[in-house]
Design a protein around this nucleic acid. Structure first.
Lengths: 135, 135
DNA sequence: CAGAATCCTTCGGGATACTG
DNA sequence: CAGTATCCCGAAGGATTCTG
């Protein structure tokens, strides 16, 4: 299965027989495409933040999801978690070099969207206009 | 809200006051991160395909989701749908220039993942090993 | 403050059946 | 062949409460 992705991967110079790669690519792609990941990474792009500040800067995300997202990112080595033994507790999150690298890559996609957003909006309007039943 | 993304966008040269941009960026990002979009786009990268062939090449996706994904992509102007008035019916899907452009951009992310997958896997193992209770 | 745990609702998406 | 319509379950995720 996944012959399509596989062919694309092989075109990129990846051994076709590596099925694990495909799964991981999907996995990471899913994380990047995740509703919250990009938001968190971009929030941390400007520098380390503690939990609460991060929560404020990423308005819309629940504390549960933020916590969960941060743990995933930390696990993948994209973010560091530093807890200070103080009272009240203070925990700071920061991008690792790997995380910054991913942020830059994602920024390309963001750039693409910005470059073509007008066209996409126009396409949607044309589509919806041509066939009102669709949506 | 979304001050983080906004600041990142402004760093990329986007007017900070444009809130609609943020929503659209998220929207398109979500589509790209979607489980099936990348699969379909990469499948179409090699040339036009009819529905059934596409379904075979994208093993794992249900016909319902394929149909749904294709309609979204068509609506955004990333894919063209060409129906031939024959019997039995034949419908061909193909990437538009815009779709190909997006495919190339996404390929960068795919490339990033490939370049760093070993590191990510190592990070995960280290994380899980250090704290068995996690994940 | 930083989060873990619990509860509960929404919905993505698969299986199946039907239509043009 | 190329879909649309129905049904349905499991997972995602928000609100709330509890703990160190």
């Amino acid at each position: 299965m996944d012959s399509a992705l596989r062919s694309r991967l092989s075109a990129a110079g990846v051994a076709p027989e590596c099925a694990a790669t495909i799964e991981l690519v999907r996995d990471v792609l899913a994380r990047v495409g995740d509703k919250w990941t990009v938001l968190v990474i971009t929030a941390l792009a400007d520098g380390p933040l503690r939990f609460k500040t991060l929560h404020e800067r990423t308005a819309g995300i629940s504390q549960r999801m933020l916590s969960q997202t941060l743990r995933s990112l930390t696990r993948d080595g994209l973010v560091t978690r530093t807890a200070y033994a103080e009272v009240p507790p203070r925990v700071e999150y920061a991008l690792t070099p790997l995380g910054r690298s991913l942020g830059d890559t994602v920024a390309h996609v963001v750039g693409w969207v910005q470059e073509h957003q007008a066209e996409i909006v126009r396409n949607r309007e044309a589509f919806d206009g041509d066939d009102p039943t669709a949506r």
